[in-house]
Design a binder for these strands. Structure first.
Lengths: 221, 221
DNA sequence: CGAATACTTGAGTGGGGTCAACGCAAGTGG
DNA sequence: CCACTTGCGTTGACCCCACTCAAGTATTCG
């Protein structure tokens, strides 16, 4: 019953290019955006310049679910690659979550995991060394990509430029470049223009002292 | 009706000292913790040492509401000062939120605002200069304390040591000390052992380029 | 084939971490 | 009541890491 209610939701599918701003800071969207295929990310742009990436989103994520209850966006959401998005009216989602406690709980849980990831990212940019930051970020993405079946033995298609990695880890692109070079020499991983290849996932996690508890993977819908 | 249901919740009030770990990392608490009076904070301790503070909590906050849906804690929660806590069984809260869509929504909204604050903290430690970080953090606390009526014209009782401020902003306590000295000279604020006095809130916000949108203050319960 | 973009590599610099010494206030016990 | 201890804050000195700048290389796209 809850499943059929979810399937009955009105959904408008849209194709958008890469590097496209789906929802802008200060915006008040009336739809939520389900990522059907592609790759998205959240970010903030402080007034004095720069960009801080806050999270990455893989297919299946509804990255702006919080807008059901928080009217105004406090950050932006964009695509990294050409993507297919499904827009669902917020009032339909709100109605659904009011009528089905199970769906409300699932939505809530989803945003709780987002929050857990944000917490880990605070630690990442605040406490860890540059190699640890990159290793941690890529361990996270690797794990999530595998959990979704989007990767085969450490290889997955993701165009992560040095700039994007730097904006995610609060490092300069030059420093990212050097760290990635070292990782390649050590046989840990290789990041080329559109593919990430994790050669030694365990070694990478060891560098980052990575503990996947915060992803609450079992708790996903 | 929802109000009376909330009031009927079983609550065990407990007095705890300052510097007390209420819920530890990896814990699986079966109660949620409402802060009745005092001051709490969340933090993570990476295995290689150090501490990253993730958020501060004022009276009225239920800082571990997420445990209703995420079984295992991925961080710790502690008190900064002697505090009064109200413990509420998770299953009672879960039952309540299943029965009252309005309460479920209010809980959800609360954790969404937490997440918005986490996002801003990523930017704080990742992108801002040391003076901006301190100014931003104290602008946030100042605003929230005033919103709760816990402060009178910029003064509020909070024992924020340089160490705590450093662990919140990813700075050394020495650097915090220097920044606070400069702020005092500039007439922006004074932080003594147990009181924060904001002399020039607007000036402080200007230093931090502070935009309160992310606090979603109107959206609070 | 040329232009544009991303990546690499090197050199120089400065901001903030670390270490260490000192000052100060509060708490303790004889 | 005072010597002692303890913990926090301050200040100075030093130094290293990562940012910035800049030049050179590779790759893709029109």
């Amino acid at each position: 019953m809850e499943k059929s209610a979810l399937r009955a939701l009105p959904l408008i599918a849209v194709e958008v290019p890469g590097d496209y701003v789906v929802v802008g800071d200060q915006g008040r969207p009336d739809h939520c955006c389900l990522l059907l295929s592609g790759f998205m990310y959240r970010y903030k742009t402080p007034p004095d310049g720069g960009r801080q990436i806050l999270s990455f989103h893989l297919p299946g994520d509804v990255s702006d679910l919080q807008n059901i209850h928080l009217g105004t966006m406090d950050h932006s959401i964009g695509t990294l690659v050409p993507s297919r998005l499904g827009f669902i009216p917020q009032d339909a989602l709100l109605k659904l979550s009011n009528e089905h406690a199970g769906i409300a709980a699932a939505f809530w849980r989803d945003t709780l995991i987002d929050a857990a990831v944000f917490r880990e990212w605070i630690v990442n940019v605040g406490r860890r060394s540059p190699p640890q930051r990159v290793a941690h970020l890529l361990s996270e993405v690797n794990l999530r990509a595998h959990a979704l079946g989007l990767a085969s033995d450490g290889r997955f298609a993701l165009p992560l430029s040095r700039q994007v990695l730097g904006d995610s880890t609060a490092m300069s692109k030059v420093q990212v470049s050097r760290v990635l070079h070292d990782f390649k020499v050590q046989g840990l991983l290789a990041v080329d223009a559109n593919t990430v290849t994790v050669e030694d996932a365990a070694g990478l996690q060891k560098v980052a002292l990575f503990d996947p508890t915060y992803l609450h993977l079992k708790a996903r819908i």
